[in-house]
């Protein structure tokens, strides 16, 4: 059964149709790439799935249950985490403090397992090690570089111990080496059992990461399938390269 199931999702801003009847599903453990030209509705789709925006029509099911009326923080607690396109760290908290927030407010709020203060410190150290930010644990976000900021953004999403991670343009503006680093990190996370949707413009990253590719153009899904097949699709080529 699908972990995430979106059907007939629609969203308008005034007269502008941002999303028009989107259907797509993601199975547990999958690595899905979501691409499309600027303004095609990728971020709006993420916002509707995560509860930042309310969709006008259609439904979103997560883990078998409809989550339509749920607020963003409730969806995070269900296991649906995201990183933001532009990093949005908590500026007054340290790097480690940033990771502590989802542990306290999501993992401990889920009920069942309760992380003690010592558990939380250990988890923070472990996550920072994983993304290579361990030496900066006690620094503030303003001291970080762009790439470190993006790693913090991913680590904070990870700290919520999600089932599904949506990474919204985690690599824009990074160098080739940095892109490879983040792709490797995401694949590693996936191997640990987390389903990942990657939204990205950098085709090299998308192609090396994705097991499946979904293409949005002007709020409509125009392709969905194996990356090498989708990329050959004449419609996709037309959308990206023009006629």
């Amino acid at each position: 059964m699908a972990l995430l199931e979106v059907s007939g999702l629609g969203k308008r801003f005034g007269g502008f149709v941002a999303l028009d009847g989107i259907d797509f599903a993601v199975a547990a453990g999958e690595r899905v790439g979501l691409i499309g030209p600027n303004g095609s509705g990728k971020s709006t789709l993420v916002n509707c799935i995560c509860g930042t925006l309310a969709n006008d029509s259609g439904t979103v099911h997560f883990d078998g249950a409809p989550i339509g009326g749920f607020k963003a923080h409730q969806r995070t607690r269900l296991g649906l985490a995201r990183s933001f396109q532009l990093p949005r760290p908590f500026m007054s908290l340290t790097v480690a403090g940033n990771l502590r927030v989802p542990m306290v407010y999501t993992v401990n709020a889920r009920g069942g397992r309760h992380l003690s203060a010592a558990d939380i410190d250990a988890r923070c150290a472990e996550l920072l090690q994983l993304v290579g930010l361990a030496p900066k644990a006690d620094r503030f976000p303003r001291d970080l570089t762009q790439v470190e900021m993006r790693k913090l953004e991913l680590a904070r999403a990870m700290a919520a111990e999600p089932k599904l991670l949506i990474a919204d343009e985690a690599m824009a503006g990074l160098s080739q080496a940095e892109v490879s680093e983040i792709v490797a990190l995401l694949i590693d996370l996936n191997k640990r059992g987390i389903t990942i949707i990657l939204i990205e413009h950098i085709m090299r990253a998308v192609m090396s990461f994705s097991e499946r590719l979904v293409v949005l153009v002007s709020g409509k899904k125009i392709a969905d399938g194996r990356p090498d097949v989708v990329i050959q699709d004449p419609e996709v080529e037309r959308a990206y390269l023009g006629q």
């Binding site: 995560c50 509860g51 930042t52 607020k71 963003a72 923080h73 995070t76 607690r77 985490a81 995201r82 933001f84 949005r88 760290p89 908590f90 500026m91 007054s92 908290l93 927030v101 989802p102 407010y105 999501t106 709020a109 904070r156 999403a157 700290a159 919520a160």
Partner: peptide, 15 residues
């Protein structure tokens, strides 16, 4: 403090 810093990010972190 997370609300003061960034409300959207706070919601996304489960606050």
């Amino acid at each position: 403090a997370t609300i003061r810093d960034d409300e959207l990010a706070a919601e996304a972190s489960g606050v």
